[in-house]
Design a protein around this nucleic acid. Sequence first.
DNA 1: TAATTATATAAGTAAATAATTATATTAGTG
DNA 2: CACTAATATAATTATTTACTTATATAATTA
Lengths: 102, 102
Amino acid sequence: MQTIEELSDTLKLLSDKTRLTIMALLRHREMCVCDIVEILETTQPNISQHLKKLRMGGLINEERRSQWIYYSLNLDDKDYLKQLIDQLPSMQEKINAVKGCT
Amino acid sequence: MQTIEELSDTLKLLSDKTRLTIMALLRHREMCVCDIVEILETTQPNISQHLKKLRMGGLINEERRSQWIYYSLNLDDKDYLKQLIDQLPSMQEKINAVKGCT
DNA sequence: TAATTATATAAGTAAATAATTATATTAGTG
DNA sequence: CACTAATATAATTATTTACTTATATAATTA
């Protein structure tokens, strides 16, 4: 159970198409910023800012490994959000289509 | 399964605090516009416009009965949204606190 | 340590949108 | 039919926000 304000803030995070696509990507595997930038074909600051919002909203985890920072879903305690994310189409084709940024 | 765009549009509808509160209210029972206006303490056009968006997004039903138009949830085929709405706190106290608009 | 790669932050701009005020529509009633 | 009540629509305004461009930080490597 949460307040209406908490839930609306969370849904606001997920209601942006770019951020929702990031969540769809991370459903497949953790990714670093450059992976996401390449797949979504946008600028690095754009993705970086969206990731920051998702992280501050508690929806993703961040972990630095040398020069890369990996992001992953953080929904283990949020079943009602997992159900949402499960509605999203597979991003596997898009993931396969790029070569990786390293 | 839906497109990312469809889901983000739906979440945008639910990410507004006023609209999410309307959904929380309708979880208890169908309501006419004046009920909601009274409970949320805002203007009639404001609520009317939010209801229109929710209706056009397929999230609520509309039914006229003489001069009143009653709105109710339309989530029977959307389990992943029902779970969301179930996260919302009860509005029973707020509903009890008003006298009804008729 | 200079150069490079990956990422973050800051500032500015343009577009989207919630709320307000004013007006129109629809239905019931004397 | 005039009047009132319930609701919708239109237009305006103010706020929010996504994206861009420019710059800063952090880690790696030659």
